[in-house]
Amino acid sequence: MVDERAYWLAWSQIPGIGPVSLRRLQQHFGTLATAWQATKSQLGEVEGFGFQTLEKVVKQRSHLHPEQLLTKHQQENPYFWTPADTDYPRLLLETPSPPPILYYRGEVELQENLGQKPMVGIVGTRQPSDYGIRWTRQISAALAKNGFTVVSGMAEGIDTESHMAALKAGGRTIAVLGTGVDVIYPPKNRDLYKQILSAGLVVSEYPGKTPPDRTHFPRRNRIIAGLSRAILVMEAPLKSGALITATYANDFGRDVYALPGRLDDHPSQGCLKLLNQGASLILKELDELLTMLGAVPQLDAVTAPTPEQLTLPTLPPELQQVIDAIAVDALPLDFIVQQTGMNIGSVSSALLQLELMGLVSQLPGMRYQKN
């Protein structure tokens, strides 16, 4: 039996073949195992595979043996997911560039349920003001107490404050690293790293022992955005990695929220720019924010028939299954996936069709309600 994980790993070892190219290969050939056996001319039919790329593929492929590579890799990096694994985070898989290998360390229960828990990213400057710290702590704690997993990057400043506040509130948190999952950066966060391992996860697309590199951190921001239902930018100057995360969030169709600040405050200039570009405002009434993010969904009611169901037009089975899963109140995308047992691509496609039919509406926080 072919292990598709081995081929995700093997393809990822070829220079010049990144997450976008791998997604294109999968879509063109159906599986990466099939793509591995494809001829040079067949590979040339894939978008982005020009002469130089094809030469690299043919040369490197002859030296790689996927099954052997997987066995050796598992000895050095035993804990990782590929898009072929059912535990791979569902929302991240929906993005155009999901990491072909996502390494993890941490608490087992969270590993098994990562795709089923609502996640919200919190990002911001490494040098926050007292104002930014205070609101980061309040919002992170509120999210944690209401069942959300707080996602951030374990950098100094806002990231560190969000992780610590979520843990202190008894909640879950995920740190997305720009190093290997066994490398603690910054070193001063050693204690925080240990706490996260006991009540959360650290994840990275880089293998073990990978040291910090300035090019890694902007790239890891797409993973923070991809994992999250929404991104909250707490404080960010105009030149800030948090704005990169917000840009990814917009590209991925996630909601972006920003904490307002004074016009003459340097740490708030990036947030003010986001608000000017259409980001939602984080207000003092946190209950409103939690509602917008989809807190406390009514899971008990998702299978109960409603009067509306009796008057719906006859729908194809997949569409009917999705609309049956939506309760009277709005339900987040990840919970619809959980209730239907369908993959996220099929659910997203069904929801789009239901929207076009006027039967479903999308709300902020990637939530859907019946019309």
Rank of each mutant, 00 (worst) to 15 (best):
I174A: 07
L32Q: 01
I174T: 12
R254M: 05
L351M: 10
Q321G: 06
R23L: 01
E47H: 06
F80G: 01
Q298F: 10
H163G: 05
I133K: 15
T247N: 14
I223N: 04
F51S: 15
D287C: 00
N250P: 00
V123R: 13
E112P: 04
T160P: 06
I223W: 02
P15Y: 03
G178T: 08
Y131A: 10
G294L: 10
H266V: 14
S152A: 12
L64Y: 01
K194Y: 04
N189D: 02
G241D: 07
G358P: 10
Y131V: 08
E76T: 13
P317I: 13
D329V: 10
A165K: 02
R134L: 07
R254A: 03
G208R: 15
L93T: 04
T53K: 12
R61V: 03
G278R: 02
A230C: 09
G121L: 09
P100L: 05
N371S: 13
L232Q: 11
L201Y: 09
A199D: 13
H63L: 11
I14F: 00
T291Q: 15
L281Q: 04
L201S: 11
P212F: 10
Q369R: 14
E288Q: 14
G124E: 04
V108N: 11
L315H: 12
T39E: 13
L69G: 09
R262T: 11
Y131W: 13
M234H: 11
I344R: 09
G261Q: 12
W36T: 02
D329M: 09
E47W: 05
R172E: 14
L201D: 09
T149M: 12
G115Y: 08
I223L: 03
C271F: 08
L197H: 02
I223A: 00
T340E: 09
R254G: 05
D324G: 07
S129W: 05
T53N: 03
E156H: 14
A279G: 03
Q277A: 11
P364F: 12
G106R: 06
P212E: 10
R262L: 14
P78H: 00
G121A: 15
Q138Y: 06
V337W: 01
G261H: 08
A35L: 01
A350H: 13
S349E: 13
P218N: 07
M342G: 01
T34F: 00
E205I: 11
K273G: 01
A6D: 03
T149N: 11
I196T: 04
Q27V: 12
I133A: 12
Q339P: 00
P307W: 08
